[in-house]
Deep mutational scan, measured.
Amino acid sequence: VTVDIKGMEYHFDNPEEAKKFAERMAKELGGELKVENGTLKVE
């Protein structure tokens, strides 16, 4: 699973970990979490 945090890509084997990480980063950065082509994106 790929997580894109404002252009920086992180790769996770575990989808649950990827989702938790993306949600935490969205909250910390005040960004919006989206799913695009199987990639979790925070913008």
Rank of each mutant, 00 (worst) to 15 (best):
K41N: 04
M8G: 02
V1A: 08
E17N: 05
L29F: 08
K19V: 11
G7Q: 02
M8W: 10
E9Y: 14
V42I: 12
D4C: 15
K41L: 09
F21M: 01
H11I: 10
A26L: 09
E32V: 15
E17Q: 08
K19I: 14
E16N: 07
K34N: 07
A22V: 06
H11W: 13
Y10Q: 01
K41Y: 11
T39F: 11
A18I: 00
V1N: 06
E9C: 15
V42C: 07
T39Y: 11
V1M: 12
T2K: 11
H11G: 02
N14C: 10
K6W: 14
P15N: 07
L40C: 08
E32D: 09
I5P: 00
G31S: 07
G30N: 11
T39H: 11
L40W: 13
F12S: 00
N14T: 12
K27A: 12
D4S: 15
K6Y: 15
F21E: 00
I5T: 01
G31F: 12
G7R: 01
R24W: 13
Y10G: 00
N37G: 11
F21Q: 00
R24I: 08
M8Y: 12
E28D: 07
A18M: 02
F21D: 00
V35F: 14
T2R: 10
L40R: 02
K20L: 12
E28K: 11
G38K: 02
K34T: 11
E36T: 10
E9Q: 14
V3N: 01
K20G: 06
V3Y: 02
D4I: 15
D13R: 10
L29E: 03
E36C: 13
K20C: 13
N37K: 07
G30F: 07
N37V: 05
K19W: 15
K34R: 13
P15Q: 10
K41C: 09
A18Y: 03
E36V: 14
K6T: 08
N37E: 08
R24L: 11
H11F: 12
M25I: 08
I5F: 07
D13T: 11
G38P: 03
L40Y: 13
G7S: 02
L33Y: 07
F21Y: 05
E36S: 10
K19E: 06
V3P: 01
E23H: 05
R24K: 12
E36I: 14
K27P: 01
L33G: 03
L40N: 04
G30C: 13
H11M: 08
R24Q: 12
G30H: 10
G38C: 11
V35H: 08
R24N: 08
E32N: 13
K6A: 14
F12R: 00
V35I: 13
L33R: 02
G7E: 01
P15R: 07
T39L: 12
G30D: 08
D4M: 15
E43H: 13
K34A: 06
E23W: 07
V1W: 15
G38E: 05
A22E: 02
E17Y: 04
G31T: 07
D4T: 15
Y10L: 03
K41F: 12
H11Q: 07
E17S: 07
M25P: 01
K20R: 13
E23C: 13
T2M: 10
V42S: 04
Y10I: 05
N14H: 06
L29N: 05
V3E: 00
P15V: 13
K20A: 14
K27T: 09
K20I: 12
T2Q: 05
M25S: 03
A22D: 00
E17P: 00
V3A: 02
K19T: 10
K34F: 11
A26E: 04
E32P: 04
G38M: 05
A18G: 07
E17V: 05
M25G: 01
I5G: 01
K41I: 12
K27R: 12
D13H: 08
K34D: 04
K27I: 12
G30L: 07
F12A: 01
E16M: 10
K20M: 11
V3H: 01
E16Y: 10
N37Q: 07
P15C: 13
P15T: 08
D4G: 07
D13L: 09
K19R: 14
K41S: 07
M8F: 12
Y10M: 03
L40I: 14
V42E: 03
T39C: 11
E16P: 01
F21V: 00
T2Y: 08
M25H: 03
D13S: 12
E9I: 15
L29S: 05
K6I: 10
F21W: 09
K6V: 10
N37R: 05
K19S: 07
V1E: 02
V3M: 02
A22F: 06
